[in-house]
Amino acid sequence: ALNRGDKVRIKRTESYWYGDVGTVASVEKSGILYPVIVRFDRVNYNGFSGSASGVNTNNFAENELELVQAAA
């Protein structure tokens, strides 16, 4: 299972961040479909780089994520 702070690569092909590595911000335990919230260094097309207006978190299912580096 994934944990907060883990570095993960995104495998959801239609995602803006496909192939990117993000950090797990939190994992919901309530049984929702996309329980893993991942935070990225770059914002998506809703904002400009360096601006706070873009979105830099997204929810994924565990099977859409590949663990790159476990949290220390």
Rank of each mutant, 00 (worst) to 15 (best):
A52F: 06
G54S: 06
L65G: 00
R12A: 07
T23M: 07
A72W: 11
R42M: 04
N46T: 11
R12H: 05
I37D: 03
T13I: 14
Y16A: 06
K11D: 04
A71Y: 13
A71R: 05
N59G: 13
R42I: 06
I37L: 13
A71T: 09
K11W: 11
F40P: 00
V21Q: 02
S30P: 09
R42T: 08
E28T: 08
F48N: 15
D20I: 07
V24H: 01
V27W: 03
W17Y: 05
K29C: 11
G22H: 01
L65Y: 02
G54N: 05
Q69Y: 09
L33G: 09
N46Q: 12
G19S: 03
D41R: 06
F48H: 14
T13L: 13
S26G: 14
E14Q: 09
N56I: 07
D6T: 02
V55Y: 09
V24D: 00
E28F: 08
N44L: 09
G54V: 06
Y16M: 04
V68M: 05
A52G: 12
V68Y: 04
N44P: 06
I32K: 09
Y16I: 05
D6R: 03
K11A: 06
V38T: 00
R12W: 03
D41C: 12
K7M: 09
T57C: 14
I37T: 14
Y45T: 15
V21W: 03
V8N: 01
S51D: 13
T57S: 08
D41L: 06
N59M: 13
K7H: 07
A1H: 13
I37H: 09
T57F: 13
A52D: 15
N58H: 15
F48W: 08
V27H: 06
D20M: 08
N56L: 06
P35M: 15
K29T: 14
A1K: 13
F40E: 00
I37E: 12
R9T: 06
V36Y: 13
K7Q: 09
G31H: 12
R4A: 12
E64L: 14
A71V: 11
A61F: 05
I37W: 15
L65V: 08
N63R: 08
S49V: 09
E64T: 02
V36E: 00
N44M: 13
Q69E: 14
A70S: 12
S30C: 07
